[in-house]
Simulated scan of single mutants.
Amino acid sequence: CKLSDPVDVEFRYTESGQVKSLQRKKRFRKYVQQVNTKKVFFKEYGDPRTMNAATGEYSEKTPPELVASEVIHFKIGSGTYGIPRWIGNIVNMYGARKAEELNYLYFKQGRHVPAAITVENGMLSESSYEQLQEYMNGIEGSDNAHKFLLLEVEGIPKKDELSNDEEPANVKVDIKSLAEILQEDALFLEYDEKTRNKIRSSFRLPPIYTGESQDYNKATADTARKTTEEQVFQPERMIITGKLNTLFLPDLDLWHVRLILNGPDFRDPLEIAKVLTPFIQAGAVSPNDLRDLAGRILGKTLEEWPEEHYHRPIEAKPKASTSLLDTVLQKSAGSQEELVHLLKDVRDELEEIRK
């Protein structure tokens, strides 16, 4: 990724609503991708020269199938290659790797019987010494756990100074535990957790985005998603669209439009429907105002109705059917003819409401 010699390029801009252009010198970078021993060259976006993708040389005689593609380099910082986001946590990552190796070796090569064997007034027999040495060499691995050790000890006789007789020695064998000086299981577990938090914070992500959602509920999860969208993802999208608009739109001769990357919609259609219920009952919204909301709930794209009356709010009508029904119940003890007339009135009123 190195700079080439400066070349003349056309720079277009707008001034007082008019598109103008000028010639200027600009140096472009050359990029190469190496996979094993194969190299593929690329040129920077906007470079007017023809590059050979196989050799990286600028030549107008390059075959069409070998013409290098253009790339746009998104980087952090002003260096040639930029700076990774996690560069400040590289020591923590090395430490986390070593901690994992230490924990692994503890279970793979750790001594299952951490103890010291002491012999008083005696010594181990030759066979016991060899057996102990073999036991210590083969103690590695979980297959050798929970095994016992049998030792044979020969006592050193003591000579009585008065009778010159040898008395049998009181041999004593002690096995002292050394477990307290060894590391505990899952050592550096807290260190590993701290390292994960530091690396995640370098990307400004909450734990829910890395699968650590045991302490989240619906309210806290929605808050974390919205905060991350506002402070992380949306600014990143603006950086990307800003660079694409600067590079692409002038070349496409587009001056009155811009590229926008849409973000997620965190609105809950059911919650919005609950809020709109009083307005619907009061006749404050039109049917076409609710088409988009109904489409999100049903998972479909609903077009607006073209008729004019669908763009006006629905007039709220009194619930006359309820009062008529009460009248029917009150008059039910009357004559059959009056009951028939009342039911017809209810039918007419319901048809009027339906229309």
Rank of each mutant, 00 (worst) to 15 (best):
Q231N: 06
L3N: 11
K172Y: 02
Q23N: 06
L150S: 14
R258A: 12
K98C: 11
L298G: 10
E130Q: 14
T80E: 12
A115F: 03
I139F: 14
K172G: 02
N245E: 01
K61W: 09
D8W: 12
S69L: 13
Y216K: 05
R258Q: 12
S332G: 12
D8S: 13
S321H: 07
I83L: 10
R97V: 10
S213E: 09
T277R: 08
T246F: 03
V113W: 06
R24T: 13
I76N: 15
F188I: 07
G334W: 08
T80H: 07
F266N: 12
Y135L: 08
S142Y: 11
G17W: 00
K20A: 04
I297D: 00
Y191D: 14
Q33C: 09
F74I: 14
K39P: 00
D348M: 08
H112V: 06
E307K: 14
Q18T: 08
M136P: 03
S69Y: 07
F266E: 07
A186P: 05
T241N: 00
L252G: 05
Q109C: 04
S201V: 08
I239K: 10
I353R: 08
N170H: 11
E271S: 15
V171E: 01
H146T: 02
V328W: 13
E315M: 08
F203K: 08
A68Y: 00
D47K: 01
L150M: 12
M123K: 15
D5Y: 06
Q34Y: 03
L182Q: 13
G299K: 14
L325K: 07
K344M: 14
Q18Y: 05
E140G: 10
T118N: 05
R347P: 06
R111T: 08
V328R: 08
